[in-house]
């Protein structure tokens, strides 16, 4: 059972610049075991960069990352995955030349199927037709398949970058249901999301990123009550509709 007093993933003072852009600015972030956290923030806030730093796709300019108390800052991405990180990308990156089964087999590294994986596969309705090619799937099913692939490798922390992008409200709702179900089984999850309805339905705690830095952190009620957070978001909405 998860221990809410234990920090499972800890980022300390993460920094990352791309040329003149500061994509991560002194990011201190702690995820307790069994938590389901949403990370929100306008486009370009540094959400994907934060995940890239956690997964080791980008090296940080400064700072440290600990997974279950162990310093993983210098580990390669594949080593972090083997230590318990599971990750999906913002753009769908299932293997298109393969069947569902082959995708999942590849994700399994030859190990047994973990129970959360099987539960999610069934809940998403992907457990039938495993010999179909991925190209036969609808967009939202590919997103779901990618979540299942991440689960197949037995992660202790799941990082999902905009998993509901392009989904209908019903599909988004179902994604939220499955994630909460997985979380109540003990899995620690961080979800980057744009969709405020999704965040409201899903998150226990919310972290707001803005210009690479953590701008606010708290429950959804606390966050939405803050005038300055609304300002960032309203600004974003105006940009997007402009």
């Amino acid at each position: 059972m998860p221990d809410p007093a234990k920090t499972i993933l800890h980022a300390i003072g993460l920094q990352k610049r791309f040329g003149g852009v500061v994509a991560a600015r002194d990011v201190d972030f702690a995820l307790t075991e069994g938590e389901l956290r949403c990370v929100i923030g306008p486009n370009g806030a540094g959400k994907s960069t934060f995940f890239a730093l956690l997964a080791g796709i980008q090296p940080p300019d400064a700072g440290r990352i600990e997974l279950e108390g162990e310093d993983i800052t210098r580990l390669k991405p594949f080593q972090r995955v083997r230590k318990g990180l599971g990750l999906t990308f913002q753009t769908n990156r299932t293997f298109h030349a393969m069947t569902l089964r082959q995708n999942l087999d590849t994700a399994g590294r030859g190990g047994e199927e973990p129970a959360p994986f099987r539960a999610a596969l069934t809940a998403f309705g992907l457990d039938r037709g495993l010999d179909r090619p991925v190209t036969a799937l609808a967009h939202h099913e590919r997103q779901w398949l990618e979540i299942c692939m991440a689960l197949r490798g037995r992660p202790s922390v799941l990082l999902l970058d905009e998993p509901t992008a392009g989904m209908s409200p019903v599909e988004t709702r179902r994604t939220s249901d499955v994630l909460r179900e997985l979380n109540s089984g003990g899995l620690s999850i961080i979800v980057v999301e744009h969709d405020i309805a999704f965040v409201r339905a899903t998150a226990q705690m919310v972290t707001v990123l803005h210009q690479g830095a953590i701008f606010a952190e708290g429950t959804m009620a606390e966050i939405t009550a803050r005038e300055d957070v609304r300002a960032i978001y309203l600004g974003k909405v105006r940009e997007e509709t402009a």
């Binding site: 293997f95 393969m98 994700a107």
Partner: peptide, 10 residues
Amino acid sequence: EDPLRTELLG
């Protein structure tokens, strides 16, 4: 097909 994806499956 996708080396980075493969690496991130461990």
